[in-house]
Write a protein that binds this DNA or RNA. Structure first.
Lengths: 341, 341
DNA sequence: TTGTAGGCGTTATCAC
DNA sequence: GTGATAACGCCTACAA
């Protein structure tokens, strides 16, 4: 069943059928209805490949992420997919893990399918070191690159992110103002975002006129599991590091901190206050629930997609869209209003 | 840069270039090398749309799910995506929610992109009522339909699932054999899988020579949140329903049950034992951790993709692949070996 | 408002 | 082993 069959059955030319399909208004009402009826009767759908060949697009945007089984990423992708679909585009998904070689390959594969744009998901997907991101800058030649929760400057590269430095700073300040003096900071990756958060942590101490105790900065391996991270805290404690609160780079680490507290017989928030990052559903699964930095994921995703769509149609768009975070108070901190189950 | 340019620059025909690109061995070594060099020099890549038009495939499989932000689904999709990519196919993702109209539309959209196969993810995606699934049977005309964690019989429809009835039965039996007599069952959807689980719950009581108290079967709304589900248990308790343990249809409900216990001042597992379903990462985030039914998600996904690939190349394949589950013991139950943090 | 015809870039089928 | 050339199905000037 091709456009040619339809044109025959409805006694018009293929051009007219094409016009009807594409909603051109240069078709008489009578003709349109006649053709539409034949199309409906035959259950005809245009061949997407032929159309792609002519138009040089299949209306698809590629999404690249390290690991979709991560709750934060899957939440992001859930938002993105919905927005993208509403714009009449499809989503090609590629999960590459963190290995650079695979990230490159994933992007190339997406480009080889002539996607109309690429979205990089995950604060840890874009490296702090600019040279590491060269492959993205090159790719931007072929399609717009959208960086969600990361920063990268380049032609045809657009970033949508939360001010992570300010966010971690205010989380740390919150604890300092609650009277805590030994705020630990836990993090994993060396992404741009991760380093910004660390800066924010330091800034909070500096602004308070206090100096930073470097032993309070606890780094876990890139692939650390919950037990690994608990172990990290245990070891720090065993080595004499004293901390009365923890700020973490992601919620998963906050869960680990909570479980560490439980295993060490510490009461939360009395003995240990904990603040996570991302305000993911995980925060509502624990007891007590976890205070976390809401980095406005929905807004980020919405802006990301709408910016991309405008770029695709050739509109000038801001290279950076920056949102502010918000501290969502729950039971793992003691001061202020508490939202808990 | 087209295949024609390459043919000119290397002084051969487009046919030969095409042969080289596609690894045909009917090309002399000399010619091949010459062409390969030109291709490399020009950085030429074949136009994917033109190729799609000729071959009538773009090597893409569609994945359909209700909600990728659900940890279980995102884990499944993570596994599936990896396997699919290893087979040289790309993944087109569509999250449709549970509304039937949208599920239909999602499938149609995927089919209109001429995907080589469709995978339905999620035990609650395929309905118990066969007539509700008619749209899938029709679609099977155009591409193989793979049902992950659900059952549906039809031409070109393949199912890969865990024996949910047996799984829930053994979870319930486990509690009965621990001496519990008031095992509640919590569930949400009316999917095939969900009904099978309920059957398993009933069967456990029957096999033990006990009768089922229908008030112990607690149904939550399709879209119930954790607080909603906690409320469901509270209400049941308030209405005089006595239960000493809970089996749930998904882990999220087990989290809710745990939080209910906490709010009601019940000790877990002493006053209330809890068993979840799916063995998702959530189970390791709570205190105590949650005993859950492992339904062998990785194996399901692996088999699903390898079956699909074989179907695509025309091999005869089993219409049903059934796996057995396993109860993973953690701190929310009291008997036997406990894996906990 | 409608029709004709050429082009999009590959692959496949023939001959040679 | 290689080269012409005809599909593949749609879109879109350009003509009428």
């Amino acid at each position: 069943m091709t456009i040619y069959d339809i044109s025959q059955k409805s006694g018009v030319s293929t051009a007219t059928v094409s016009r009807v399909i594409n909603g051109s208004n240069a078709v008489s009402k009578r003709t349109r209805e006649k053709v539409l009826k034949v199309i409906a009767d035959c259950g005809y759908t245009p061949n997407i490949f032929a159309r792609g060949l002519g138009l040089n697009t299949m209306r698809v945007v590629g999404i690249l992420c390290a690991d979709i089984s991560d709750p934060f990423m899957s939440q992001a992708i859930s938002f993105l997919e919905k927005e993208i679909r509403e714009q009449g585009y499809d989503v090609l998904l590629s999960c590459t893990g963190m290995e650079m070689k695979n990230r490159r390959k994933g992007l190339d594969l997406l480009l080889s399918k002539n996607v109309d744009g690429v979205i990089f998901v995950g604060s840890n997907y874009v490296e702090a070191e600019r040279s590491e991101n060269a492959y993205i800058l090159e790719a931007a030649d072929k399609a717009p690159m959208m960086i969600l929760n990361g920063r990268l400057d380049g032609d045809n590269v657009y970033c949508v992110y939360c001010d992570d430095k300010a966010a971690t700073m205010s989380a740390t300040v919150w604890l300092l103002e609650s009277g805590r003096r030994r705020v630990a900071y836990m993090f994993q990756s060396h992404s741009y975002s991760s380093l910004k958060k660390l800066e924010g942590y330091r800034q909070a101490y500096l602004n308070a006129g206090l100096s930073v105790d470097e032993t309070l900065i606890i780094e876990c391996g890139e692939e650390a599991s919950i037990p690994d991270m608990m172990e990290g805290l245990s070891q720090a404690a065993a080595q004499g590091v004293v901390f009365d609160s923890v700020v973490t780079a992601v919620d998963g680490m906050a869960v680990a901190a909570l479980k560490y507290a439980h295993s060490a017989g510490l009461e939360v928030p009395g003995d240990l206050e904990i603040i996570g990052f991302n305000n993911s559903p995980l925060c509502a699964c624990t007891e007590p629930e976890i205070t976390s930095v809401d980095n406005k994921l929905y807004s980020l995703c919405h802006t990301c997609v709408s910016t991309l769509m405008r770029v695709i149609v050739g509109e000038e768009q801001p290279k950076h869209s920056v949102f502010s975070s918000e501290l969502i108070l729950r039971g793992s901190t003691s001061r202020g209003k508490v939202i808990d189950g």
